[in-house]
Computed example of a mutant assay.
Amino acid sequence: MDQSTLILSLLFTFTALTTTLFSSGFAGTFDTQFDITWGDGRGKVLNNGELLTLSLDSASGSGFQTKNEYLFGKIDMQLKLVPGNSAGTVTAYYLKSNGDTWDEIDFEFLGNLTSDPYTMHTNVFTQGKGDREQQFHLWFDPTADFHTYSVLWNPHHIIFMVDEVPVRQFKNLEHRGIPYPKMQPMRLYSSIWNADQWATRGGLVKTDWSKAPFTASYRNFRADACVSSGGKSSCPAGSPRWFSQGLDLRAEDKMRLVQSKFMVYNYCTDSKRFPQGFPKECHLH
């Protein structure tokens, strides 16, 4: 076993332990913190509010949103994605503000044929502009069990995490002329929908409706965050650790390792897409 493989093995063994520990606590109740917003009964709150499921069939998908809006925080949710042949389906899990110049922090999970990997798609929008996609294959089967997908959003960084392992960082580089989401409160949304015109191999693989309904499951929501209402934000007592948290050297090493092993697309290396030069943030660290 080479050194990088050994490091990766140790890293993800530790990750599995932290996921098990996390899953026993911080269980949010979906009936009090969320609204199912569409789907005509395809979204369901179960187990006394501790489990939520969203389903997709040939007639419709479904979706939900938080009752609260947040302006900075650490948002955690455990998801178990559609098992089996999920090609053509997309499960979206994201923070988004209102209006034409919205901010958004995206996870999207692009389904695939049985035994082929899901693609985890990430993006950051500022003032209505995105085009900052990075995509990954995960180091586990995201349909076999629940895993924790987190966003740490503070005035300095946006950090995407999977089972507490950082996979992507978007820094506040406003001093270099790059907009950063910091003024607009966002709700957390999730939905499952049919995107077989583009999601799987550029639309080559279509949704097999004989496998419907396609169902994703959610549990253990936690928002350690500032709640925004009426133009004012109410933050947790004291000085929450996440408000100034970044990545230390060890965490940056983990992130680089994940990116080297599992990243399958990075907009900052797509020269065909940006023939006039890469976006400014691609050159800054």
Rank of each mutant, 00 (worst) to 15 (best):
K129C: 01
K232C: 00
G99E: 02
K211L: 04
V90M: 07
G61L: 07
S97W: 04
Y180F: 15
L46G: 05
N220F: 04
D2E: 13
G73H: 06
L173P: 01
Q33W: 05
P179D: 13
H121W: 13
Q259A: 14
H137Q: 13
K171L: 15
F14D: 12
M1R: 10
C235N: 02
F160R: 03
T91W: 03
K206G: 06
R256H: 14
L6V: 08
L188Q: 10
N48C: 02
W193S: 11
P185E: 12
A237I: 02
S97A: 12
I105R: 01
V227R: 00
L247E: 08
D253N: 07
D145Q: 13
M255W: 09
R241F: 10
D35Y: 07
S271N: 08
L54Y: 01
Y189E: 13
S239E: 11
P275F: 14
S228C: 14
S4W: 07
V162G: 08
N266F: 06
Q127I: 00
P240L: 07
P240K: 04
L56P: 05
N112E: 13
E133T: 09
S217T: 13
I36H: 00
R256W: 12
P236R: 04
R201C: 08
S150G: 10
C226N: 11
G277R: 11
V165F: 04
Y189T: 08
D57C: 06
S62K: 00
C282D: 14
L284T: 10
P213D: 04
S58P: 02
V82H: 02
G177M: 08
V167M: 12
M255G: 02
S239R: 07
G63M: 09
N266T: 11
